[in-house]
Amino acid sequence: MAAHNEKGKLAEEQVKNWLIGKGYEFKVSNYRHGYAEIDLIFEYKGILVFVEVKFRSGTGFGYAEEFVDYTKRKLLIKAADHYIHEIDWHKDIRFDIVGVYQDKNGNINFKHFEDAFY
């Protein structure tokens, strides 16, 4: 596995643990449908939450949340729709983005954008 893929998987695991610590109930990781993959799926206060995780070792090329473009959002919505029907979900949903930033000292920080798009 390429180094950037390994960092991405580690970032997803860190976000998963971080959100569980905030009271989110973990459901699924790396849910795939067609060409789309949803990094993490949680339930939080009766809402099904689809989370896209973006890792950045700096902001020189932009912020993590800026890398979820129209095409990516469309794919995520399509996969989420499939998951919703698969589990017969009839309550609210939302799409979050969590940016994972590593500073020069190796410290990890999270930036959580709730209800980032629809």
Rank of each mutant, 00 (worst) to 15 (best):
Q14A: 03
G46T: 08
T59P: 12
A2N: 12
G21S: 03
E6M: 11
K78H: 11
I108K: 07
D39E: 06
H4T: 09
Y63L: 06
F67L: 03
K74T: 12
E52Q: 10
L40F: 08
V49L: 08
G60C: 06
K111M: 05
D92F: 06
W18L: 14
Y70E: 15
G62K: 03
S29Q: 14
F26A: 00
K22N: 08
K104E: 13
V49D: 02
K9I: 13
F42P: 09
K74F: 07
W18F: 15
N17C: 09
G99R: 00
E25S: 10
S29H: 13
F110M: 14
K54G: 00
Y31A: 00
F61I: 14
V98Y: 12
G106S: 07
G8T: 05
H82T: 02
Y44L: 10
R94C: 04
V28T: 10
A36I: 02
G46C: 05
D103Q: 02
L10W: 15
K104H: 13
K72C: 09
F26C: 07
G58I: 01
I38V: 12
F95P: 02
I108W: 13
E37P: 07
I77H: 02
Y63F: 15
W89C: 01
R73M: 13
H82W: 15
V68T: 06
N30K: 04
G62I: 09
K22A: 02
D115C: 01
Y44V: 06
K27W: 15
Y101W: 13
R56G: 03
T59W: 12
T59Y: 13
D103N: 11
E65Q: 14
F110A: 02
E66A: 10
I93T: 02
E37T: 04
F113A: 07
V68E: 00
V51N: 00
E43M: 07
L10C: 01
K16S: 06
W89I: 00
K54C: 04
V28G: 05
D92N: 11
Y118N: 12
V100E: 01
V28K: 10
I108A: 03
R56V: 00
I97C: 09
F113E: 00
F26V: 08
I87S: 01
Y70D: 14
A2D: 07
I41H: 06
K27A: 06
I77L: 05
Y35I: 15
V68I: 14
N5M: 09
H33C: 07
V49K: 00
D96I: 05
W18S: 13
A11Y: 04
F50W: 00
N107P: 04
